[in-house]
């Protein structure tokens, strides 16, 4: 694996919601296999940044290049790009009218990546990987929060993405369920997945991240290895934030 290969290149990204400037000037590169954790107070623009990468939000200015393709370009087939970018949401967003297995097999079958049988086989493998093989035929509303989020991760992985985006994946979970989800994410990171994670789990950031990016007020304030950011933060805002959460 060439660790210097850039998976995501963001240049001078700006995003406004009406008059509100959420992202003011963001430039960041994410290399292949890198795990980047985005920290920062709420309203700092972390989630918006993540949602810009797969174009759930359109950008106001700047460019985002994913695997050499400019996703902000109107001529880009965004659906094709999204097939390679998995996303996991705070509120899981599983499809409630489908079984767990159907949630996972839907996209690869519909997008003709796999046949029905291949998708089911792969779905079962993924469910086994997240420890939920016995839940294949149940509906999402019969699962606990932690189980739902693990299914959501399996669903995203079914498309064989190169990059995974996690938008506060454990924020809606009861405390005792956070561990099981982080464990799945940790394994994914160990397997070499390129990941961008918005989270408040400092422990996860410390152990799993290659790089921590601290955001505040629509800017990247400071970034570095977990060691640098968590032990020796240089910016006043980073120090202030870490004092509150640690």
């Amino acid at each position: 694996m060439d660790s210097s290969k850039k998976k995501v290149q963001v240049k001078n990204l700006k995003k406004n919601f009406g008059k509100l400037e959420v992202l003011k000037d963001i430039s960041i590169d994410i290399s292949e296999g890198e795990v980047v954790v985005l920290l920062g107070p709420s309203g700092s623009g972390k989630s918006t940044f993540l949602r810009c990468v797969n174009q759930l939000e359109t950008v106001t200015a700047g460019s985002i290049i994913v695997d050499g393709i400019d996703v902000t370009d109107k001529h880009t087939d965004i659906n094709k790009v999204r097939e390679n970018i998995g996303m996991v949401f705070q509120h899981f967003n599983l499809f409630p009218h489908m079984t767990v297995l159907k949630n996972i097999t839907l996209a690869p079958v519909e997008l003709k990546k796999l046949t029905q049988e291949q998708a089911q086989k792969k779905g079962m493998e993924l469910l086994a990987r997240v420890g939920l093989a016995d839940k294949a035929d149940t509906y999402p509303n019969q699962l606990s929060g932690g189980q739902k989020q693990r299914v959501a991760i399996a669903r995203a992985l079914a498309m064989n993405p190169d990059i995974m985006l996690f938008d506060e994946p454990t924020s809606a979970l009861d405390p005792e369920m956070v561990g099981e989800v982080l464990e799945v994410m940790r394994e994914l990171a160990l397997g070499g997945m390129t990941m961008a994670v918005v989270t408040h789990e400092i422990g996860f950031a410390r152990e799993v991240a290659n790089r921590i990016v601290f955001m505040d007020g629509g800017y990247i304030v400071e970034q570095g290895t977990p060691e640098e950011i968590l032990k020796n933060p240089k910016q006043a805002r980073t120090i202030d934030f870490l004092n509150k959460v640690l």
């Binding site: 097939e83 967003n93 997008l111």
Partner: peptide
């Protein structure tokens, strides 16, 4: 979130 999840899969 349902539409977002679906679109994020490439549908």
């Amino acid at each position: 979130g349902q539409m977002e999840a679906s679109r994020s899969l490439g549908l």
